[in-house]
Design a protein around this nucleic acid. Sequence first.
DNA 1: GCCGGAAGTTGTATTCTGCAACCGGAGCCC
DNA 2: GGGCTCCGGTTGCAGAATACAACTTCCGGC
Lengths: 172, 172
Amino acid sequence: MTAAETPDDPVDARGGGAHGEPGGGPADVAVETIQREMTAFARRARASAGRMHPELSLVSYTLLGHLEERDGCRATDLAAHYALDKSTVSRQVSALERAGLVERRPDPDDQRVQVLHLTEAGRQILAQVTRRRRAAFRERLADWEEGDLVRFAAYLERYNARPDTGGDEGAG
Amino acid sequence: MTAAETPDDPVDARGGGAHGEPGGGPADVAVETIQREMTAFARRARASAGRMHPELSLVSYTLLGHLEERDGCRATDLAAHYALDKSTVSRQVSALERAGLVERRPDPDDQRVQVLHLTEAGRQILAQVTRRRRAAFRERLADWEEGDLVRFAAYLERYNARPDTGGDEGAG
DNA sequence: GCCGGAAGTTGTATTCTGCAACCGGAGCCC
DNA sequence: GGGCTCCGGTTGCAGAATACAACTTCCGGC
């Protein structure tokens, strides 16, 4: 699934059998490639994440990152943003709270809501894991030109910018 | 985590606290963004995959795709390629075989090996799911210019082209 | 022929996740 | 105020995905 395995035409490389009909313009080819590569990426992602920082699951890391980014938010926001069930988020947050990485603050405007915030410990763990992850990425992207990095980042942002339509957009 | 939420500087936007040290050049910023967006993407990927084609999990879909691409391969190859434990692959393959989507053929050269192949049913299911996924991607990327699609696809291929370093490259 | 290694399978435990039911507060209409 | 509905969150329950380790069978080298 990885480019290394099908460095040639991303559409026809798949053997045609099941993948024959995508028109054929450059845009079609590109879309096909994007869907395939995003899928490949997503598949491998989780596999290696656990090995690198077992102390913080991928989900936990992501949630903590979100909390830092937003400087606190509600559990429901997290659920909606990551297309997770609210119960899943609830449990994750409980675990993070037990671990002392996040704290819940009541929302003065709405008694139902609890605003989640990183604790200092959470901030430190997050920073540590982030350093490690960033180092891995940096190494992987070491031979890229700056211009390509910037453009790639922009495309990813643009792709991810769209809200969850309920379909498979994230879709990998 | 999505661009829509932090359209500004991806490094400093995170609040500084835990993310202060990445130099600051455009390349650093881009790497930070890529790691963040890839992570976000991967997180959402699995979430939506199940909703789109419940009959074929993301892993199964990927494995089938690999089989079609390679026109058959060993279970061990799948495990190594996707950084999955061989036991996991074994069970996945068992399920796919029970479902009639793949078949095992003994390797004449090595009795230990079983070469996995798609069945016609497997090919059809794969084609169907692929169509659906492709449609979703196409819709999501509908308003992109052709040039951007092509460049984005190229970047993804380049990123994924690297072999698994054992780190967290897939990362998200 | 014997031993180490590779391919797969199976037992066991863990983790993640979703769905459904439920609780309590908020908002709204009468 | 009373009642209805919606929303944020929690908990019970069940299923799926995985990893790790022990075991079986087969291949190769010595």
